[in-house]
């Protein structure tokens, strides 16, 4: 930028640095949560031989890391600019709505024996993840 605008460039990349830092923190806590989920699920069978205390501790650790991930996500969202926040809000709204409607329809298919397998919660989680990715991509394309 030109010299007469040096006051505007005193902290040229602080916002972007903060954003990258927030994204990295969210990634870290998400990875920690996923790993603790695996530990809670497989630990009792493969590591501590069904010790109840360790199993409860693993579940509590998973819960605590999950909460930490949620707060890291909130912090990340607050650090985005207003257009990015709008894209994320739209993506979340679409994901919530579709997950509710499609999830209950999927559950009904199972209850009514219209599908040959059980409607698992993991299917819904995968659906939510894919919906969120697609909705975010569409939102970003809209403003490109």
């Amino acid at each position: 930028m030109t010299d007469n605008n040096n006051e505007n460039t005193s902290k040229p990349t602080s916002w972007q640095k903060k954003n990258k830092s927030n994204t990295a923190k969210m990634g870290f806590w998400t990875a920690a949560w996923v790993l603790s989920m695996a530990l809670a699920n497989f630990g009792q069978r493969f590591i501590w031989d069904f010790n109840l205390t360790l199993t409860v501790l693993a579940v509590l650790l998973n819960l605590a890391l999950g909460l930490k991930m949620v707060f890291a996500n909130i912090h990340h969202l607050k650090g985005l600019d207003e257009m990015q926040q709008r894209i994320q809000l739209n993506a979340m709204g679409i994901t919530l709505g579709l997950s509710l409607v499609v999830g209950l329809t999927y559950s009904n298919l199972d209850v009514l024996n219209l599908i040959s397998y059980h409607a698992e919660i993991s299917h819904l989680v995968i659906f939510m993840g894919l919906t969120y990715i697609v909705a975010t991509f569409i939102g970003q394309s809209k403003y490109r």
């Binding site: 930028m1 030109t2 605008n5 505007n8 460039t9 040229p12 990349t13 602080s14 916002w15 972007q16 600019d81 207003e82 257009m83 990015q84 970003q140 403003y143 490109r144």
Partner: peptide, 20 residues
Amino acid sequence: RDWTQAQLAEALEVSRQTIN
């Protein structure tokens, strides 16, 4: 002012995509 979108984005603390 001969600024790029990225420079304006930095000054306004938004992303370059938002300026665009």
